[in-house]
Design a protein around this nucleic acid. Structure first.
Lengths: 316, 316
DNA sequence: TCATCTTCATAGCAAATTGCTATACAAGCC
DNA sequence: GGCTTGTATAGCAATTTGCTATGAAGATGA
């Protein structure tokens, strides 16, 4: 007893409007077309859907029941068109964004929040990973975009990379750390304190190796590893340990006044944080909007950083 | 951006089955038919719904979204066919039954409960009324059937009346009523006690008039009126008042052992309780099933009453 | 790396459906 | 009864649907 979904919708429209002509008008059709649809539906069902010979058109129990389902179809259809409209305009949909953990936690999560203020209809799905995982996530279309530091090993021409922040690491420590009393701490001073290792696979790990090399040490006194940014921050704030962190991450967390950075120059990675996308990925306007938002906010961040540094220089 | 609901359903089926061929099979169609539907949908939307050149067919974000709505349509459609199947078999649907208050409360409500044990899918909508209201309810198709006592004034040939229980009234009183001590109370005895008047419009009201006439009294000492059966029972049980009630109602309530009937003969109405339906009403199989159930249970009730009376005769 | 297999896309055709206009019909209303 | 309103039917053109046959392209395995 499979019946035509279009007919069910028309039935619902007719019952909602209280007449064949009105229902037809609602659907942008003519009365005879709808009338015939109803006849066909009745013929298929084999039972009357309307009580014959009654002017304010009156449905039978079955007609009423079927109209319920017709209404469901009607609303689903309307929602589908809404979804397409929203998708085309980018005002609704889902954005799946992957990123390296520390940046996601310190910066992007807040940006997602501010994005949601503007675009309440868009759902953002966040996931974590380092560059290789993110790239394969893009390849498998598991994520729409990745926010990651990308350096000399650009993943390839199949990808678009939008640079949003030059890589810049600092040695972070708690506010009031013993080394902060010195105007210029030396390499040997740094080696005297315990260190926090970055997450395995993180580019910060190679950065840390480079730092070791540059200050002529074979190994550091690693006392903590594997923590998320929040864990690292907690550890850092409650100990004299040191950690290599992106400058922007430390900057973003300056309000909390728990960690700061040592005035110690370390070799900088040839890397930039940016948005990575597959060029051949299907267009997701919601993702476009999200990327635009991210770029805009990062741009603001750059200016804030600049103003902040100028201010610091002046007050020195 | 109105799109074809059938296409949306096919999209949903394809994504659920993980392939065009499988989805087509699920819908009982061929692969090319579905394939073309998807192409047409894509063309209408203007955006890809699938990621090209990828063998385990992978939908885009938009494809996924639209499939959700397609699924909704699919389930609504399935439910519609279920509704028709259920309607035809009478195993689902709604039965709207109207009836005179006392019978509904004392007998039919229990029967509806037992009916629901057998036919869990059928919803029963109960309403109250006396014969004129019930008939106009049938005329306006507000109820599918009426359970009411019908006498000489049969409503007409447009209706079907199924007799289920001959009318038989008794004078009811509480158990332990003073009059129960007498083997044969007399009319003047009855007049000495307060009476409960039936609901206005109830056939019991005319019955009461007839009783008055037969015992040669001009009026009774009416002390309570307008109550539902439960109220009447409560009043009856807690007072020495008398009431005219259908025998079957008193019989049905014998378990509670709160009221009984006086061994006093009263004129019986030329009336029968039965099921009244419009002949031209649309067929509602669920209602048929309900009526069958009612008839069956009332038949059982008749036999029970007979056995009970025989037993009473024996033990006397 | 090539042959093979599976799965999707396209072409072409017959049949069904859809939508329209014009018109007949039926129920309510004076 | 006659009028008004709203529904059903007829007939026709255009579109859509579904099919079979076949081509194309990613996946698979030696």
């Amino acid at each position: 007893m499979k019946m035509n979904e279009r007919h069910l919708m028309q039935l619902a429209a007719v019952l909602d409007c209280g007449g064949v002509s009105e229902g037809a008008a609602l659907l942008g059709m003519t009365q005879p077309a709808v009338s015939r649809s109803l006849s066909m539906l009745e013929a298929r069902v084999g039972e009357p859907l309307f009580i014959k010979g009654r002017r304010p058109l009156q449905p039978t129990a079955l007609g009423l029941q079927l109209a319920i389902h017709g209404r469901a179809i009607l609303t689903a259809s309307r929602r589908a068109t809404d979804a397409v409209q929203g998708h085309l305009k980018g005002t609704s949909g889902v954005v799946r964004v992957g990123g390296v953990p520390f940046f996601m936690d310190a910066l992007v999560s807040q940006m997602i929040a501010s994005f949601h203020q503007e675009e309440a209809e868009i759902t953002v799905n966040q996931s974590y990973g380092n560059l290789p995982e993110l790239v394969s996530g893009l390849d498998a279309h598991l994520i729409d975009l990745a926010i990651a530091p990308v350096g000399t090993t650009h993943p390839g021409t199949a990808y678009e990379f939008i640079d949003i922040l030059p890589g810049r690491n600092v040695v972070a420590c708690r506010t009031g750390h013993p080394l902060m009393r010195r105007t210029r701490p030396r390499a040997t001073d740094l080696a005297a304190f315990p260190w926090i290792a970055p997450l395995p696979g993180s580019p910060l790990m190679t950065d840390l190796q480079m730092i070791l090399l540059s200050i002529g040490l074979s190994e550091l006194n690693i006392r903590y590893s594997g923590g998320s940014l929040m864990s690292v921050m907690n550890f850092l704030a409650d100990s004299d340990a040191l950690a290599v962190l992106p400058f922007s991450v430390v900057f973003a967390l300056r309000r909390e006044n728990r960690v700061t950075m040592l005035p110690f120059d370390i070799p900088q990675p040839d890397r930039s944080l940016g948005v990575l996308r597959r060029l051949d990925a299907p267009r997701v306007p919601a993702a476009d909007r999200f990327v635009n938002h991210i770029i805009r906010v990062f741009d603001d961040l750059k200016h804030t950083i600049k103003r902040h540094e100028n201010a610091v220089v002046w007050t020195r």
